[in-house]
Design a protein around this nucleic acid. Structure first.
Lengths: 158, 158
DNA sequence: TTGTTTGTTCAGTATTGACCGAACAAACAG
DNA sequence: CTGTTTGTTCGGTCAATACTGAACAAACAA
């Protein structure tokens, strides 16, 4: 298989996984492409050419990726076109976004508890466990992210 | 608003959040319903009646929830109908499933690194960081789950 | 100004999948 | 065995949305 074909295939795999976490397929494709592209910064036409998707799709998907903080636009001196590339430390950003879901689940549990405020304890137990569980992770995952930062900067010191 | 209406509304909210994490809306509705129902175990008709969804939808959604390990079927002695209820320790199960995505992302990175095996280090750096990041969480989140178990059983000792 | 390059918006299409009702199957009661 | 209750499967409909091409806008060059 051609190299371009392999790259496209990889981008497709990334897209599938992105879809699993609720993001659009094209956004995933582009992100996957930007993970392996050489150079790391690519123009819209590079992406259109590389992935065989329409310019309009790339336009909306990149906007989404930029708003999400996963990709950044950059202009090179003397260049008219915009370039796109994966931002530094994407994965922390990405993980923090997933954290929002953790928080949302905790709030959901609290909403339910409020609704069942006048109900007996056994009935509220299910929601209490839910709330406590997510409150725990809401606190601990940021701590993990910090530890990751530590580990990484430690490794880079060599 | 009637109580039933409030409950339905809560179930709807749960459904929306379930959708965010890639599960079907009806499954989320049913799960939300089972979180607050009294008693905790409900028949199919209870759910059909409570949520105003078709029996067929409930059938496929409960099957899915059972396969996922979030809900269990139980038969009561002398009762002909099946009952459904949220399993003990759902949230650990749920979190472990999300862990599969973490693992999938790590594998994806490794697939990419394999593909770029003959490429210069700078080009592989993006994928290496991705792999290391997810490998880190793949190791640390189970540890967190264990700690949660500890904390919980500690709290229950009173 | 006029023409060219680059990127965005919009309307239409097509695909996906959730949902329902009805037909069907299985288990049980009489 | 016959009828009733309970649950599953299937076909069709509907809604949501991803994607495209084409029209449009904006920035720049000549």
């Amino acid at each position: 298989m051609s190299t371009a074909g392999e790259y496209r295939h990889f981008a497709e795999d990334v897209a599938l996984h992105f879809e699993q976490v609720g993001l659009s397929r094209t956004a995933g494709r582009i992100f996957g492409w930007l993970l392996i592209s050489d150079p790391p910064h690519q123009t819209m036409d590079d992406v259109v050419e590389g992935l065989k998707v329409s310019k309009s799709s790339v336009s909306v998907a990149t906007r989404f990726l930029i708003e999400s903080g996963l990709v950044q636009r950059l202009s090179l001196p003397g260049e008219r076109r915009d370039y796109y590339c994966v931002v530094e430390g994407v994965w922390q950003t990405f993980m923090r976004q997933q954290m929002n879901q953790v928080k949302a689940f905790r709030k959901l549990a609290e909403q339910g508890l409020k609704m069942l405020a006048d109900q007996p304890a056994e009935r509220r137990n299910r929601l209490r466990e839910m709330r406590d569980f997510y409150a725990f992770f809401e606190e601990e995952i940021p701590a993990l992210l910090d530890r990751w930062e530590m580990v990484k900067s430690e490794a880079e010191k060599d």
